[in-house]
Design a protein around this nucleic acid. Structure first.
Lengths: 127, 127
DNA sequence: AGAGCATATACGTGTCAAGGCATATAAAGA
DNA sequence: TCTTTATATGCCTTGACACGTATATGCTCT
């Protein structure tokens, strides 16, 4: 269970992450909303915690779990290599960027622009 | 092996995808570069093909495999829900965006800007 | 202190997938 | 046609992991 990819391969873990994106939750709340047994939830949370996807704070008997960003960045970094493939039309990408800008509190001022070499990959097409 | 996440959970499959990002490759080429046995490569390629990550064309006895974009989009769509979490500081994001712009042949002209409601999620912090 | 609630862990079991080895299929070239 | 090369597939073993049940730990309140 080394990589972040193995962590998010599990549907129940993705469901848990999906819950936590709206707000932090206790084990019991997760258990009820996702209809999973308590030990199952605890085990998945353990995996998620050890992988850095979540952290917990103690609230009396409860433990409140919330998301942590790092592993998501890692997935995104991997994905970045492949972006050019699905951004053949830029429109989807455009929306994507806008959504990102919109969802951040900070004001964008200027967008830097670099004119690096346009290293397009050569895929030898079979004619 | 339903979801795209299970597909990319396998390190060897990610390695194969990593190879194909530069250009299409035959099974034998992948086999040699990644030091995997031929059946292993073929099996992984089958999984990747059935999941829509790659497609192949016949070149005499060889089969040339290349990437397909759709499943990557799917991963990205999932990831999108979590973006706000790791884009707390914009700087990493900034670099990220620049990299994307740089790597696309199309010229960006104007960046659309929308002023939607800044729906920040409420995570009830434990005081 | 004792009862009750919330969460974590231990153990046993079943499932599934990855890899090795052997073999099948198929095209190319002599 | 026979051999060689390229790829796919079948069978088998092994290991990892997800889940259930039972139990342990730890906190709260009376």
């Amino acid at each position: 269970m080394e990589s972040v990819f193995e962590i998010i391969a599990e549907p129940n873990r993705r469901a848990i992450l999906g819950l936590l994106v709206s707000s932090q939750q206790s084990v019991g709340e997760i258990e009820r909303q996702l209809r999973m047994t308590q030990p199952t939830v605890s085990k998945h949370l353990r995996v998620l915690r050890e992988a850095g996807f979540v952290e917990s704070t103690v609230d009396a008997q409860r433990r409140l779990y919330r998301l942590k960003p790092e592993p998501f960045r890692e997935v995104d970094a991997w994905l970045a290599r492949f972006r050019r493939f699905w951004s053949a039309h830029l429109d989807a990408l455009e929306r994507h960027l806008d959504r990102m800008e919109q969802s951040t509190p900070t004001q964008r001022k200027t967008r830097r622009r670099r004119g690096g070499p346009n290293r397009e990959c050569d895929r030898g097409e079979t004619k």
